[in-house]
Amino acid sequence: MSWLKRPVKGLLLDISGVLRDGDHVIPGSLEAVQRLQASGIPFRLVTNETQVTVEKTVEKLTKLGFTGICPSSIFAPAPAVAAHLRENSLRGYLLVHPNVLPQFEGVETTEPNCVVVGDAAEHFNYERLNQAFRVLLSLRDKEEPMRLFSLGKGRYYKEEDGLCLDLGPFTAALEYATGAQAQIFGKPNATFFQAALKDLSLSPEEVVMIGDDIVGDVGGAQGAGLRGVLVRTGKFRASDENHDTVKPDAIVDNLSQAVELIMNQNL
């Protein structure tokens, strides 16, 4: 197990597909998190969840039994892009789920000069996509930058009733139609991982990312200099084990197995 030859001083964990599937705890994950908390090994939760606020994510995890998790330990794209808009006085057309709008408090939305795309789920419709398209084209016509911000670029995610289209395909549609290049604020963007590393006060080679997304979690983490471990839970598919471009540092059955291996190695 070459991935454990270097000490693991910190962890980044995905939420959906690693800790939970929908409203159900993935077997062993609750105990694995409790074991990490007792061990003192620091970890942060990094998620592309953009249908609810960070506070609601904590609330949901708490109801599932994950205690001791606070909003500051969760890194999600919406707060990051909202801060970027406020810091740069940008006015956004927010193509996001209504549940996440509280994260954009203080962001001006009249006469938008940028578009923000999140996982709007059932709120993705032709009218809203077409309005985002028109905003970007109007910026081009005024010879202004076509600022398109995407809260991730995942292909799909898993809910209890099966796989669902993520926001990546919708982002790609706007890119194709306008020629704009989206700036990604979630996984697999390296800056997203670096923010969590900074909060841990650890270097990339000291940290392991554990996720169920071969590209967003594993590939993104490796691109930022971390070790990436793939779990066979969540949206994992057998074909991920032989991905064309991303080669995980390790593949484990679940979070519980990964934590067990790390604990044994750190003894």
Results as ranks from 00 to 15, higher is better:
Lys198Arg: 15
Ala38Met: 12
Asn242Gly: 13
Leu45Cys: 05
Ser150Gln: 06
Ala238Arg: 11
Gly68Cys: 05
Glu127Leu: 10
Leu255Ile: 11
Asp161Met: 05
Ala132Gly: 05
Val252Met: 09
Asn242Tyr: 10
Glu143Leu: 12
Ala182Glu: 02
Ile41Cys: 10
Asp244Ile: 10
Asn189Cys: 14
Lys56Thr: 13
Lys247Ser: 12
Thr67His: 13
Arg35Cys: 14
Leu139Cys: 10
Ser89Gly: 08
Gly234Ala: 05
Glu122Pro: 13
Val52Leu: 02
Gln194Lys: 12
Ala132Asp: 01
Arg6Phe: 03
Lys56Val: 11
Ala196Lys: 06
Lys63Cys: 08
Val46His: 06
Ala38Tyr: 08
Cys164Gly: 01
Ala250Met: 03
Gln265Phe: 05
Ala120Asp: 10
Asn264Glu: 15
Asp249Arg: 04
Val218Glu: 07
Ala238Gln: 11
Ile262Trp: 06
Ala78Trp: 04
Glu59Ile: 04
Leu136Thr: 02
Ala76Leu: 04
Ala173Trp: 05
Asp141Arg: 15
Ala182Ser: 08
Val81Tyr: 00
Gly17Arg: 02
Gly216Tyr: 00
Asp119Thr: 00
Leu148Trp: 03
Ser16Tyr: 12
Gln183Cys: 09
Cys70His: 14
Val46Pro: 07
Val115Phe: 01
Pro112Phe: 07
Asn242Lys: 15
Gly154Met: 10
Gly92Lys: 03
Arg128Met: 07
Phe192Pro: 00
Val246Arg: 00
Phe170Ala: 02
Asp244Gln: 13
Asp141Cys: 09
Arg140His: 12
Ala76Ser: 12
Pro79Ala: 07
Val115Trp: 02
Asp161Asn: 12
His123Gln: 08
Gly162Met: 09
Thr110Trp: 09
Ser2Asn: 14
Ser150Met: 07
Ala221Asp: 10
Asp253Trp: 04
Val100Gly: 04
Arg147Gln: 12
